[in-house]
Design a protein around this nucleic acid. Structure first.
Length: 510
DNA sequence: GAAGGGTTGCACCT
DNA sequence: AGGTGCAACCCTTC
């Protein structure tokens, strides 16, 4: 919410710099907007096309109210690279559930439109004093102006709390262009190889001291691994631009065309989709298209692309996951970063999502989706639901036997557990050898570290090896049931007699 | 019906 | 850093 309010203040400042201003009206839009149009003699209202169910209902209601009042309405596509409806038309049927299939379709649609740039001159709808504004909106809206967090019923946040970067187009474009200036980094960017344990702040004292915690380090080239260069302010290993895209501070079309210019200068010597930076923009687009073109995309039931899996709904295990009490330091640290900063690296999201659903706890992906939707500063309906289905092997991705290890995954990136120690200070004196599996430390080591498992830090809520085995078996059975129901079950492929052919390829207990 | 490919597994090997 | 075994998924293409 703070990021949104910052973005609105930044927009207001930009409008003021060209002699206009942002006017925020409070109230029920179906009432306020027709009233404003009547009072101010407005005959056209425009807005950005939105595919999210909540927004679709809202926009339809507002459109109805405005049209009944004789006001013309126009919604335009600007939040995605392509007009999602045009892509869906090209699909001629359900949208593709594979990335390659999606690329084939948008590949035939030419270049995305250029972002509509800010006009050099703005009309001056209103630039009055507060008293004049009050008079203007009197009888139109319940209130006006950009609210504060407190106005909205939230507690104020300190500068060092919450998402570490400020909202708004100004900050977003600075971040975009600093990232795009790292030519060699862009050329070599491969998302699966980025490090989920790098943070916004320096892990160790860096010099010179950054002016602000969200300032991006200058320089690039080799030695990009921040741990290799003590003078480099550590920032996430990805662009961290997602909140700016989510709130419309940075247009994906601006991102696309400016990135394209950088790539053009590299003469083909750069990574390619799906793993490249451009590939990431296309993943966003992919989820928007399939999200807009799939019924009940945000549910398991009634969702034609979603495997029906008998997830359990265990409130205690879910609470342990949400509140960093699973006993797996990597998982608990990531969930702490999520709650504190509203942001996680993509692979950390994978780790905690896999753990909650198909990897260990077998809890419904919709519950995890809800947590992310509430906690992430970049929470995006299409991307969030799509990725939860991906990670839970409900759609798009089906290799359920590839399970992230809750105690092994982060070791590859952060041997000493600096990330864990930052977010879980209770473990800060635990020897590196045991940082990801503190329950394996001898009791005297735990005591010496001031962290006794079961007292100062939870014991693991599940035994990973046996829990993941049970998850794999249950998903396999659910897949078999799906194949049987669809008549796509294959005959047995082992050496069993032909009479078994009508059975699923393997019998598994539910 | 089979083969090939699929952004991001792990443990163990060289 | 890169290969393999693990036991074997789905979707697309031929």
């Amino acid at each position: 919410m703070r990021f949104l309010l910052e973005s609105l203040r930044d927009l207001d400042a930009s409008l003021r710099s060209v002699g206009s201003s942002l006017l925020v009206l409070h109230g029920e839009p179906r009432v306020v907007l027709p009233r404003a149009c009547k009072s101010w003699d407005v005959n056209l209202v425009t807005w950005e096309h939105d595919i999210e169910p909540y927004a679709k209902v809202r926009d339809l209601a507002v459109r109805g109210a405005l049209e009944r009042a004789g006001v013309e309405c126009a919604s335009v596509s600007g939040h995605t690279l392509y007009d999602v409806d045009e892509v869906l038309k090209k699909c001629k049927g359900p949208p593709p559930t594979t990335y390659q299939g999606f690329l084939k379709i948008v590949g035939s649609m030419g270049e995305p439109a250029l972002a509509t740039g800010a006009p050099e001159k703005m009309p001056k709808p209103f630039t009055g004093t507060f008293e004049e504004t009050r008079a203007l909106v009197s009888g139109v809206a319940d209130g006006y102006g950009i609210p504060t967090l407190e106005d909205l019923g939230y507690e104020a946040l300190g500068d060092d709390e919450g998402f570490p970067a400020r909202g708004g187009e100004t900050e977003g474009l600075i971040r975009l262009r600093k990232q795009l200036a790292r030519t060699e980094w862009i050329a070599g960017f491969e998302k699966p190889n980025t490090n989920p344990t790098t943070r916004f702040h320096a892990l160790k004292q860096s010099k010179p001291k950054p002016k602000s915690p969200f300032e991006i380090a200058a320089g690039g080239g080799k030695g990009e691994n921040p741990k290799m260069d003590a003078n480099t302010l550590i920032t996430p290993s990805t662009t961290a631009l997602s909140p700016y895209l989510k709130f419309g501070c940075v247009s994906p079309r601006t991102f696309y065309h400016e990135l394209k210019a950088v790539l053009a200068a590299l003469d083909g010597k750069h990574s390619k989709p799906p793993t490249s930076l451009m590939g990431q923009l296309m993943w966003r687009e992919f989820y928007y298209v399939v999200g807009a073109g799939t019924a009940n995309f945000d549910k398991m039931e009634g969702n034609p692309i979603c495997r029906q899996i008998p997830w359990i709904k265990d409130k205690e295990l879910y609470a342990a996951w949400e509140n960093s009490q699973t006993g797996y330091p990597w998982i608990d640290a990531a969930m702490t970063q999520l709650r504190q900063e509203g942001w996680l690296h993509h692979l950390a999201r994978h780790a905690v999502a896999c753990f909650l659903t198909r990897g260990d706890l077998f809890i419904h992906w919709e519950w995890g989706r809800d947590t992310f939707d509430r906690e992430l500063v970049d929470a995006d309906w299409a991307i969030n639901n799509g990725n939860w289905m991906w990670l839970s092997c409900s759609a798009f991705f089906y290799q359920y036997f590839r399970v992230y290890g809750p105690h092994s995954f982060a070791k590859k990136y952060d041997k000493d557990g600096d990330y864990v120690k930052h977010y879980l200070p209770v473990l800060k004196n635990m020897p590196s050898k045991y940082i990801y599996e503190p329950w394996t430390a001898p009791l005297d080591v735990q005591r010496k570290a001031g962290c006794v498992v079961g007292v100062d830090y939870p014991a693991p809520v599940v035994h990973h090896a046996s829990a993941s085995k049970a998850c794999v078996d249950t998903i396999a059975a659910a897949y078999d049931a799906h194949k049987l129901a669809n008549g796509t079950a294959k005959p047995s492929q082992n050496t069993s007699p032909p009479s078994d052919d009508a059975q699923p390829s393997k019998k598994r207990k539910l």
